[in-house]
Nucleic acid binder design. Structure first.
Lengths: 170, 170
DNA sequence: AAGATACGTCAACATGGCTGACATATCTCG
DNA sequence: CGAGATATGTCAGCCATGTTGACGTATCTT
């Protein structure tokens, strides 16, 4: 295996060393950036007695109303048993409602209630606050770079699913 | 607040709508990018019977040899009881060793064994593979943008700690 | 009518967080 | 020197959220 760990660049540091440092920088920033952003909404969630799993579901249902359970499962990449628990709690608190699919009656379409939408909006405000501050500080050029690198981290097989979030459902 | 991006604005679309879409795009890419990157090493970890918590500790100890327990606690932002469990397992498997701090004998300095370093290198190779592919596809300009935005997501109070990872310990 | 699909659910278990309460060794400072 | 702060470890129990496996029902497709 290559001698990849070479602390404290000596004169003539190899490009290989520089590469490692760039990778580690990305790993660390991604870790801290992601975790700190999600921390930002934990307090708000705790007030409602909800957890991050609930937020993820609320987020995607807000993003794509009339999402089916199957689609949500694919987005979250968890088992239906885990999701079932979360959806049951959201339903019990009247944050989410379901209706039978008009084309395929086996499907359940998910939607936020007014209360659910209000909660999601409140949580989203936290994300918006922090992300837009970061966007503004970094500048537009950086923001598109940020998107491009992250897109490259999403496996080919998932990419269409992620892009489709930006489209209205038909 | 600055109107930072206007991707092929549709006629009459409000700036507020564009802003929200840009925020959601960032949230989603961050979520999928981060989770898919971490998924990449789960299989490798499972082979060893270890979890992600172990990887995070291994990563930071590799990054900064002779890190103290207290410093690692601050990086991970978890309780000492949680970290204690993880460190005990790493120690039992001879992946990590500790030595008493030379200046302050209360401290324990953490280091990877050869086996620990080999495992960390193997896991890092997965991260490197995916991140460098994303870097190459996006281009150098995008990579610096990626870093800048993420730096803006790290709260002021944590930023120095993150930057210090790139320095050798003195 | 048969088989595939979408969804739900019961039960048991693993991981990795958390709080609270203490114990020990060591350092710092008046 | 002695008192208090600090760094670390540890016991015990709890919670959130993931997992596997096994079934059941309604509905669609062919």
């Amino acid at each position: 295996m290559a001698d990849i760990s070479r602390p404290s660049a000596s004169p003539g540091a190899s490009p290989l060393f520089l590469r490692e440092d760039e990778i580690r920088r990305g790993v660390e920033l991604l870790y801290f950036g992601y975790t700190r952003l999600t921390n930002a909404i934990d307090q708000e969630l705790a007030k409602q007695g909800l957890g991050r799993a609930h937020h993820r579901a609320l987020y995607f249902i807000a993003r794509q109303p009339d999402l089916t359970v199957g689609e949500l499962l694919r987005l979250l990449a968890i088992t239906k048993q885990s999701l079932g628990r979360v959806l049951k709690e959201l339903h019990d608190r009247d944050l989410v409602v379901t209706k039978t699919g008009p084309l395929d009656r086996r499907q359940k379409l998910l939607r936020l209630t007014d209360a659910g939408a209000a909660l999601e909006a409140e949580l989203f405000a936290q994300l918006r606050e922090r992300l837009s501050a970061a966007y503004v500080t970094a500048g537009q050029e950086s923001v598109t770079g940020f998107w491009h690198v992250l897109e490259g981290l999403v496996p080919e097989s998932d990419r269409q699913m992620v892009f489709d979030l930006r489209k209205d459902k038909t």
